[in-house]
Protein backbone atom coordinates (compact mmCIF):
# COMPACT_ATOMS: atom_id res chain seq x y z
CA UNK A 1 0.00 0.00 0.00
CA UNK A 2 1.34 3.44 -0.76
CA UNK A 3 0.20 6.96 -0.27
CA UNK A 4 -0.05 9.29 -3.16
CA UNK A 5 0.34 12.94 -2.49
CA UNK A 6 -1.72 15.11 -4.76
CA UNK A 7 0.39 17.81 -6.28
CA UNK A 8 3.66 16.15 -5.40
CA UNK A 9 3.39 13.05 -7.44
CA UNK A 10 5.76 10.77 -5.57
CA UNK A 11 4.91 7.54 -3.90
CA UNK A 12 6.40 6.97 -0.50
CA UNK A 13 6.77 3.59 1.08
CA UNK A 14 4.09 3.18 3.66
CA UNK A 15 6.00 3.04 6.88
CA UNK A 16 2.81 3.04 8.90
CA UNK A 17 1.57 -0.17 7.41
CA UNK A 18 -1.74 -1.63 8.32
CA UNK A 19 -2.19 -5.32 8.75
CA UNK A 20 -4.96 -7.31 7.15
CA UNK A 21 -5.89 -4.46 4.90
CA UNK A 22 -9.55 -4.62 4.10
CA UNK A 23 -10.26 -3.58 0.57
CA UNK A 24 -13.03 -1.20 1.38
CA UNK A 25 -15.10 0.05 -1.52
CA UNK A 26 -13.54 3.25 -2.77
CA UNK A 27 -15.61 6.16 -1.54
CA UNK A 28 -17.28 8.05 -4.33
CA UNK A 29 -15.42 11.14 -5.44
CA UNK A 30 -17.05 13.85 -7.45
CA UNK A 31 -15.54 14.48 -10.86
CA UNK A 32 -13.73 17.77 -11.25
CA UNK A 33 -16.10 20.57 -12.14
CA UNK A 34 -16.36 21.31 -15.86
CA UNK A 35 -18.13 24.29 -17.34
CA UNK A 36 -21.79 23.45 -17.64
CA UNK A 37 -21.55 20.57 -15.19
CA UNK A 38 -23.45 22.68 -12.68
CA UNK A 39 -26.57 22.31 -14.82
CA UNK A 40 -26.28 18.56 -14.73
CA UNK A 41 -26.01 18.55 -10.94
CA UNK A 42 -29.14 17.85 -8.95
CA UNK A 43 -29.38 21.53 -8.09
CA UNK A 44 -28.76 22.57 -11.70
CA UNK A 45 -31.61 20.36 -12.87
CA UNK A 46 -33.87 22.12 -10.45
CA UNK A 47 -32.76 25.42 -11.87
CA UNK A 48 -33.61 24.19 -15.35
CA UNK A 49 -36.99 23.18 -14.04
CA UNK A 50 -37.50 26.57 -12.42
CA UNK A 51 -36.58 28.55 -15.53
CA UNK A 52 -38.65 26.41 -17.88
CA UNK A 53 -41.49 26.51 -15.37
CA UNK A 54 -41.30 30.28 -15.36
CA UNK A 55 -41.60 30.33 -19.16
CA UNK A 56 -44.63 28.09 -18.98
CA UNK A 57 -46.26 30.26 -16.31
CA UNK A 58 -45.78 33.37 -18.43
CA UNK A 59 -47.33 31.54 -21.34
CA UNK A 60 -50.26 30.45 -19.20
CA UNK A 61 -50.91 34.06 -18.17
CA UNK A 62 -51.00 35.15 -21.83
CA UNK A 63 -53.13 32.14 -22.74
CA UNK A 64 -55.62 32.91 -20.00
CA UNK A 65 -55.91 36.56 -20.98
CA UNK A 66 -56.62 35.42 -24.54
CA UNK A 67 -59.23 32.92 -23.35
CA UNK A 68 -61.14 35.64 -21.55
CA UNK A 69 -61.79 37.31 -24.90
CA UNK A 70 -64.48 34.69 -25.35
CA UNK A 71 -66.65 36.88 -23.14
CA UNK A 72 -66.34 39.74 -25.65
CA UNK A 73 -68.16 37.65 -28.23
CA UNK A 74 -67.53 35.42 -31.21
CA UNK A 75 -66.04 38.10 -33.48
CA UNK A 76 -63.48 39.35 -30.97
CA UNK A 77 -62.44 35.84 -29.99
CA UNK A 78 -62.02 34.52 -33.51
CA UNK A 79 -60.26 37.71 -34.52
CA UNK A 80 -57.87 37.33 -31.64
CA UNK A 81 -57.20 33.71 -32.59
CA UNK A 82 -56.52 34.78 -36.15
CA UNK A 83 -54.28 37.66 -35.02
CA UNK A 84 -52.06 35.22 -33.16
CA UNK A 85 -51.07 33.72 -36.47
CA UNK A 86 -50.25 37.08 -38.00
CA UNK A 87 -48.08 38.60 -35.28
CA UNK A 88 -44.99 40.19 -36.69
CA UNK A 89 -46.25 40.31 -40.26
CA UNK A 90 -45.00 41.42 -42.64
CA UNK A 91 -41.55 41.28 -41.01
CA UNK A 92 -42.22 37.67 -40.12
CA UNK A 93 -43.96 35.28 -42.48
CA UNK A 94 -47.40 33.98 -41.53
CA UNK A 95 -47.57 31.96 -38.28
CA UNK A 96 -43.84 32.16 -37.67
CA UNK A 97 -44.17 33.93 -34.36
CA UNK A 98 -46.65 31.33 -33.19
CA UNK A 99 -44.35 28.56 -34.36
CA UNK A 100 -41.49 30.09 -32.40
CA UNK A 101 -43.71 30.17 -29.33
CA UNK A 102 -44.68 26.56 -29.92
CA UNK A 103 -41.07 25.49 -30.28
CA UNK A 104 -40.04 27.36 -27.14
CA UNK A 105 -42.93 25.83 -25.25
CA UNK A 106 -42.16 22.34 -26.50
CA UNK A 107 -38.52 22.67 -25.53
CA UNK A 108 -39.52 24.10 -22.16
CA UNK A 109 -41.95 21.26 -21.52
CA UNK A 110 -39.39 18.66 -22.52
CA UNK A 111 -36.66 20.15 -20.34
CA UNK A 112 -39.11 20.58 -17.48
CA UNK A 113 -40.08 16.93 -17.75
CA UNK A 114 -36.53 15.76 -18.26
CA UNK A 115 -35.50 17.47 -15.02
CA UNK A 116 -38.51 16.08 -13.22
CA UNK A 117 -38.02 12.55 -14.46
CA UNK A 118 -34.31 12.48 -13.79
CA UNK A 119 -34.80 13.90 -10.29
CA UNK A 120 -37.56 11.39 -9.62
CA UNK A 121 -35.36 8.55 -10.80
CA UNK A 122 -32.48 9.83 -8.71
CA UNK A 123 -34.83 9.98 -5.73
CA UNK A 124 -35.92 6.41 -6.28
CA UNK A 125 -32.33 5.20 -6.43
CA UNK A 126 -31.49 7.27 -3.36
CA UNK A 127 -33.91 5.28 -1.22
CA UNK A 128 -33.81 1.65 -2.25
CA UNK A 129 -35.56 0.43 0.91
CA UNK A 130 -38.74 2.24 1.89
CA UNK A 131 -40.05 2.97 5.36
CA UNK A 132 -42.54 0.60 6.91
CA UNK A 133 -44.41 3.46 8.51
CA UNK A 134 -45.20 6.71 6.75
CA UNK A 135 -46.16 9.60 8.97
CA UNK A 136 -49.70 10.93 8.59
CA UNK A 137 -48.68 14.48 7.74
CA UNK A 138 -45.56 16.50 8.03
CA UNK A 139 -44.55 19.80 6.59
CA UNK A 140 -45.18 19.80 2.84
CA UNK A 141 -45.73 16.14 2.17
CA UNK A 142 -48.35 17.11 -0.39
CA UNK A 143 -45.79 19.03 -2.39
CA UNK A 144 -44.03 15.96 -3.78
CA UNK A 145 -47.28 14.24 -4.65
CA UNK A 146 -48.86 17.24 -6.29
CA UNK A 147 -45.71 18.04 -8.20
CA UNK A 148 -44.67 14.58 -9.29
CA UNK A 149 -47.95 12.71 -9.81
CA UNK A 150 -49.88 15.91 -10.46
CA UNK A 151 -47.35 16.68 -13.17
CA UNK A 152 -48.17 13.41 -14.93
CA UNK A 153 -51.91 14.24 -14.79
CA UNK A 154 -51.21 17.68 -16.23
CA UNK A 155 -49.19 16.17 -19.05
CA UNK A 156 -52.07 13.87 -19.98
CA UNK A 157 -54.42 16.83 -19.84
CA UNK A 158 -52.22 18.94 -22.11
CA UNK A 159 -52.12 16.15 -24.68
CA UNK A 160 -55.88 15.84 -24.65
CA UNK A 161 -56.23 19.63 -24.69
CA UNK A 162 -54.04 19.95 -27.80
CA UNK A 163 -55.88 17.14 -29.55
CA UNK A 164 -59.12 18.82 -28.62
CA UNK A 165 -58.73 22.53 -29.27
CA UNK A 166 -55.55 22.86 -31.32
CA UNK A 167 -55.77 19.93 -33.69
CA UNK A 168 -59.47 19.32 -33.16
CA UNK A 169 -58.99 15.59 -33.35
CA UNK A 170 -61.22 14.88 -30.38
CA UNK A 171 -63.34 18.02 -30.72
CA UNK A 172 -67.02 17.45 -31.53
CA UNK A 173 -66.70 20.00 -34.35
CA UNK A 174 -63.45 18.61 -35.76
CA UNK A 175 -60.27 20.49 -36.64
CA UNK A 176 -61.64 22.80 -39.28
CA UNK A 177 -64.11 24.73 -37.17
CA UNK A 178 -63.69 28.28 -35.93
CA UNK A 179 -62.16 28.53 -32.48
CA UNK A 180 -65.27 29.99 -30.88
CA UNK A 181 -67.37 27.14 -32.15
CA UNK A 182 -64.94 24.57 -30.97
CA UNK A 183 -65.00 26.02 -27.47
CA UNK A 184 -68.77 26.24 -27.34
CA UNK A 185 -69.20 22.74 -28.71
CA UNK A 186 -66.67 21.31 -26.33
CA UNK A 187 -68.21 22.59 -23.15
CA UNK A 188 -71.86 22.44 -24.16
CA UNK A 189 -74.22 21.47 -21.30
CA UNK A 190 -74.50 17.96 -22.68
CA UNK A 191 -70.72 17.65 -22.47
CA UNK A 192 -70.68 18.50 -18.75
CA UNK A 193 -68.21 15.70 -18.09
CA UNK A 194 -65.67 17.34 -20.38
CA UNK A 195 -66.07 20.53 -18.41
CA UNK A 196 -65.67 18.61 -15.17
CA UNK A 197 -62.46 16.98 -16.40
CA UNK A 198 -61.17 20.33 -17.59
CA UNK A 199 -61.94 21.99 -14.27
CA UNK A 200 -60.26 19.24 -12.28
CA UNK A 201 -57.19 19.40 -14.50
CA UNK A 202 -56.98 23.18 -14.20
CA UNK A 203 -57.23 22.95 -10.42
CA UNK A 204 -54.40 20.44 -10.57
CA UNK A 205 -52.41 22.97 -12.55
CA UNK A 206 -53.20 25.54 -9.85
CA UNK A 207 -51.92 23.29 -7.08
CA UNK A 208 -48.83 22.56 -9.17
CA UNK A 209 -48.20 26.27 -9.56
CA UNK A 210 -48.93 27.16 -5.95
CA UNK A 211 -45.90 25.12 -4.92
CA UNK A 212 -44.05 25.45 -8.21
CA UNK A 213 -43.89 29.23 -8.36
CA UNK A 214 -42.76 29.47 -4.73
CA UNK A 215 -40.31 26.63 -5.31
CA UNK A 216 -38.85 28.29 -8.41
CA UNK A 217 -38.00 31.38 -6.38
CA UNK A 218 -36.18 29.18 -3.86
CA UNK A 219 -34.36 27.28 -6.56
CA UNK A 220 -33.23 30.45 -8.24
CA UNK A 221 -31.96 31.64 -4.87
CA UNK A 222 -34.41 34.48 -4.53
CA UNK A 223 -36.20 33.47 -1.34
CA UNK A 224 -35.15 34.73 2.08
CA UNK A 225 -36.63 34.14 5.48
CA UNK A 226 -38.26 37.57 5.56
CA UNK A 227 -39.70 37.19 2.06
CA UNK A 228 -41.22 33.75 2.54
CA UNK A 229 -44.72 34.92 3.44
CA UNK A 230 -44.78 37.32 0.54
CA UNK A 231 -43.61 34.66 -1.88
CA UNK A 232 -46.17 32.15 -0.68
CA UNK A 233 -48.87 34.77 -1.07
CA UNK A 234 -47.66 35.71 -4.55
CA UNK A 235 -47.52 32.08 -5.70
CA UNK A 236 -50.96 31.40 -4.27
CA UNK A 237 -52.44 34.49 -5.89
CA UNK A 238 -51.02 33.80 -9.34
CA UNK A 239 -52.19 30.19 -9.13
CA UNK A 240 -55.67 31.21 -8.00
CA UNK A 241 -56.08 33.89 -10.70
CA UNK A 242 -55.02 31.42 -13.38
CA UNK A 243 -57.42 28.79 -12.11
CA UNK A 244 -60.31 31.26 -11.98
CA UNK A 245 -59.47 32.64 -15.39
CA UNK A 246 -59.17 29.27 -17.05
CA UNK A 247 -62.13 27.69 -15.33
CA UNK A 248 -64.48 30.60 -16.03
CA UNK A 249 -64.66 29.92 -19.79
CA UNK A 250 -65.85 26.28 -19.83
CA UNK A 251 -68.08 26.80 -16.80
CA UNK A 252 -69.80 29.78 -18.41
CA UNK A 253 -70.25 27.80 -21.60
CA UNK A 254 -71.68 24.83 -19.74
CA UNK A 255 -74.17 26.91 -17.80
CA UNK A 256 -75.13 28.69 -20.99
CA UNK A 257 -73.82 32.19 -20.38
CA UNK A 258 -71.62 31.85 -23.45
CA UNK A 259 -73.17 30.10 -26.42
Amino acid sequence: MSWTYPGIGHNFPDVASRSNTVTAPRPPRAAAARPGSVYRSSVGKKAVMAVTGAILVLYLVAHMVGNLKVFLGRADFDHYAHWLRTIGEPALPHRVFLTIVEVVLTVAVILHMWSAVSLARRARRARPVRYAVRPAAREHRYATHVMRYGGVVILLFVIWHLLDLTFGAVNPRGGGAEPYDKVVADFAPSHWYVTAFYVIAVIMVGLHLRHGIWSAFQTLGLGRRRRQRGLRLFAGTVAALLVIGFVSVPVMVTIGVVS
Binding site: P28, R29, A30, A31, A33, S37, V38, S41, S42, V43, K45, K46, L119, R122, A123, R125, A126, R127, R138, E139, H140, R141, A143, T144, M147, H211, W214, S215, Q218, T219
Partner: peptide
Amino acid sequence: MVAQMDAEGFGGCTNTGE
Protein backbone atom coordinates in the same frame (compact mmCIF):
# COMPACT_ATOMS: atom_id res chain seq x y z
CA MET B 1 -19.90 20.15 -2.19
CA VAL B 2 -22.96 19.79 -4.43
CA ALA B 3 -20.98 17.62 -6.84
CA GLN B 4 -19.89 15.39 -3.95
CA MET B 5 -23.44 15.24 -2.62
CA ASP B 6 -24.60 13.99 -6.01
CA ALA B 7 -21.71 11.54 -6.30
CA GLU B 8 -22.67 9.98 -2.99
CA GLY B 9 -26.03 9.01 -4.42
CA PHE B 10 -28.24 11.31 -2.41
CA GLY B 11 -31.44 12.44 -4.10
CA GLY B 12 -31.99 15.94 -5.44
CA CYS B 13 -33.77 18.63 -3.48
CA THR B 14 -37.30 19.47 -4.57
CA ASN B 15 -38.03 22.10 -1.93
CA THR B 16 -40.46 19.95 0.02
CA GLY B 17 -39.33 21.33 3.36
CA GLU B 18 -39.53 17.94 5.10
